[in-house]
Design a protein around this nucleic acid. Structure first.
Length: 388
DNA sequence: AATTCGTGGGC
DNA sequence: TGCCCAAGAAT
């Protein structure tokens, strides 16, 4: 009753039962003949399906494949995942981004050990209660691994359905997903729910794409209202994103007599939580007269390096000498912000006290350590140029 | 409900 | 280059 209203309220007319059956058959036949051969499609183990679905969140298939293979080889069971150290997990995830995903998986693995005797739960509500598993992933795992008729609505599915039904709802709004879920509950093939969900996603990824979309190539074009009505360029409706905010950091790579570089562990919340970056001083925290006077002309002099030295001494209890001229500039764009890192090299004079937040790492060990991409870029800047 | 979480690819 | 996008979830 309540969910029936959800479609009516949004003026969505569901197809007849006959048309729905026809659609299922057409879509699944196309899927059987054209589905992509992906590593996680050769298993029905919910653990492996789970790993793949977490990696695939906001991440393209081609990027995920090598990470997926390495991950399940290193941690072949849920118990292995539960017992793994954070360093191991982060190293396996290095470069994938959204690092809370792997931390949450570790938490969820322990939830499974404690609440489900180490066996991946089959009940949808239990799956949804696992850390890091939301509506999409719960539906994906239960439908694919356990053949349950649960919707798995991701960006592909919303785009496909928007075009099939000429849906005018904004797919960037959180409330919209529930409408698509209700549509999928009507449409999903009760005999092959996992394949049905994956077929919609494959269709979205390979034919019903965001760009370069040609609806006449779609195996379900006869069901596509926006194609038949020539309105397909309007869909999906999606609000444009806000511009990213830019932040400029004076980034100081301090080197000690042993040739090690200094990194700071970031706070446990926020951007790159718990990860290591060089010392970063927000330009806004500097004496405004100072940086404005010479930085705008890309000119640097000892006033800046001396101010950086003073801030580093006050903040970290380190006596350092900062080079007058920067080594270079590193830019890194996140989803919602952009870092400009003006990189200075420095040498350690004296460590007045020791902090557990600070870590010295030699360049020879860079491969063994986990660094987020901005740090890797700075490492490369400082190192490659030093080689010559 | 709107923000905040990375990174790489495509055009 | 700058912007969009990618098998989303937590807060």
């Amino acid at each position: 009753m309540k969910q029936k209203d959800l479609l009516e309220k949004n003026e969505i007319i569901m197809w007849s039962e006959e048309k729905i059956r026809d659609f299922r058959a057409t879509l699944l036949q196309w899927y059987d003949e054209n589905k992509r051969d992906l590593p996680w499609r050769s298993t029905s183990d919910p653990y492996y399906i789970w790993v793949s679905e977490i990696m695939l969140q906001q991440t393209q298939v081609d990027t995920v494949i090598p990470y997926y293979k390495r991950f399940i080889e290193t941690l072949p069971t849920i118990e292995d995942l539960a017992k793994a150290s954070e360093e191991t997990l982060l190293k396996l995830w290095e470069g994938l981004g959204y690092y809370s995903r792997v931390r949450n998986m570790n938490v969820a693995a322990n939830q499974i050990l404690e609440k489900h005797e180490g066996k991946f739960p089959t009940a949808h509500k239990d799956v949804l209660n696992l850390k890091g598993i939301g509506p999409y992933t719960a539906g994906a795992v239960t439908s694919i691994a356990f053949n349950q008729p649960q919707p798995a609505v991701d960006g592909n599915v919303m785009r496909v359905l928007s075009r099939l039904f000429e849906i005018d709802l904004d797919i960037s709004k959180a409330s919209t997903r529930k409408v698509f879920e209700e549509m999928i509950r009507r449409l999903i093939d009760p005999d092959r729910p996992g394949d049905f969900n994956q077929a919609l996603m494959d269709l979205g990824a390979t034919i019903c794409t965001p760009k370069n979309y040609s609806p006449e190539n779609s195996p379900v074009k006869e069901f596509n209202a926006s194609y038949l009505n020539e309105s397909w360029e309007k869909y999906p409706v999606k609000k444009k994103k806000n511009k990213v905010t830019e932040q400029t950091y004076y980034t100081v790579m301090v080197k000690n007599k042993e040739g090690e570089y200094l990194y700071k562990k970031r706070p446990s919340k926020g951007v790159l939580a718990g990860m290591h970056t060089p010392l970063m001083i927000d330009r806004k925290d500097l004496n405004e007269e100072g940086w404005k006077a010479f930085n705008q002309k890309e000119l640097y002099d000892s006033r800046l390096s001396q101010e950086l030295e003073q801030i580093i001494k006050e903040t970290y209890d380190l006596k350092v000498t900062v080079n007058e001229q920067p080594k270079g500039v590193v830019a890194h764009v996140f989803s919602h912000l952009k870092w400009e890192m003006i990189v200075f090299e420095a040498v350690l004079i004296e460590e007045l006290s020791h902090s557990s937040e600070l870590k010295w790492i030699h360049a020879d060990r860079f491969d063994e350590e986990m660094f987020p991409m901005p740090t890797q870029k700075v490492n490369k800047l400082v190192n490659t140029l030093t080689l010559f």
